[in-house]
């Protein structure tokens, strides 16, 4: 039997990984140019956290995990704007480049191309004592990196909803020429939003890496794509995107917890969230079509 509190504990940890990346993706969608590279940026965040964390400590790891993907996202957008390259293709290029680059660098940084565990980089659970409270205890049983990831997700959401940059991003997505006529550099706005999405994906990756305290090749394992799906399933709205991320987090948590109580192979259980999400996307689209 799956205990509700254990299920929620895992679901919130999964949400800490999915929500920042999804909200980062939503930011670029607002700006009219969806960042397809969420998966690669998440991986860049995980690698940066482990590489810089191993060399300079946890705080430096988290800072690098946000700055490095942010710079990659900004440069990729700059490239697509200045070189007239399609942002979709550039995003795919980033998704191919990051795992290869991380694998090459891993050999030099960790001395191995495979899994590299670094002592001291697994985040602790600062409020573990309160985790035994029924149901709501799951909120207190998380790792410190998860709280940091939620903090960044809230910050990005506030930037989108409450600041001039958020308003300009939406304006850039609706009518770039109108923004330019108002004397605002629409390219600069898009660049800033891309950097923000990189930052959000980076903290997602860091939360993933710090939950195990190790670098595992391709550890994002499709979560960046799920974040992208959450943007669409959530109707390209902040609340909807967060709710869709929460749904996927719950499905992933169910698949993980089910491994302990059933004889079913782990791979089959892990495939279920992807199939169920696809079904949800189809049903959601069908509903929109009827409207």
């Amino acid at each position: 039997m799956i205990h509700l509190s254990a299920l929620l504990l895992d679901a919130i940890a999964f949400l800490a990984v999915l929500a920042p990346a999804a909200i980062g993706g939503l930011a670029t969608e607002y700006a009219g140019s969806l960042n397809i590279a969420l998966e690669g940026l998440m991986l860049a965040g995980a690698f940066s956290y482990m590489a810089f964390g191993a060399a300079f400590g946890t705080v430096a790891g988290f800072i690098a995990a946000m700055l490095v993907p942010s710079a990659i996202a900004y440069v990729s957008d700059l490239f697509s704007r200045k070189a007239n390259a399609d942002s979709f293709v550039v995003g795919l290029g980033v998704n191919m480049l990051v795992p290869a680059a991380a694998s090459m660098l891993s050999k030099y940084v960790f001395g191995s191309k495979g899994v590299a565990a670094v002592a001291g980089l697994q985040s602790g659970r600062p409020f573990a004592g309160a985790a035994s409270i029924p149901v709501v205890g799951a909120l207190f049983g998380q790792r410190s990196s998860d709280y940091l990831a939620f903090g960044v997700a809230i910050m990005v959401a506030l930037v989108l909803a409450r600041t001039p940059l958020g308003t300009r991003a939406k304006a850039a997505g609706m009518n770039r020429d109108a923004l330019t006529m108002a004397g605002i550099d629409s390219g600069g706005v898009r660049g800033a939003v891309y950097a923000l999405s990189g930052l959000a994906c980076g903290i997602s990756g860091a939360a993933l890496a710090s939950s195990v305290g190790a670098w595992v090749p391709n550890m994002s394992a499709g979560r960046g794509w799920i974040a992208l799906v959450a943007v669409y399933l959530g109707g390209k709205r902040l609340g909807g995107t967060f709710a869709a991320s929460a749904l996927f987090a719950l499905l992933l948590s169910l698949a993980t917890r089910a491994q302990a109580i059933t004889e079913a192979p782990a791979e089959l259980l892990l495939s279920l969230p992807y199939f169920l999400t696809a079904v949800v996307v189809v049903l959601g689209s069908s509903r929109s079509k009827r409207k």
Partner: peptide
């Protein structure tokens, strides 16, 4: 259903 192939294809 008019579901976006980009999303469903990667998930499936």
């Amino acid at each position: 259903a008019g579901a976006e192939v980009l999303l469903t294809s990667i998930l499936v």
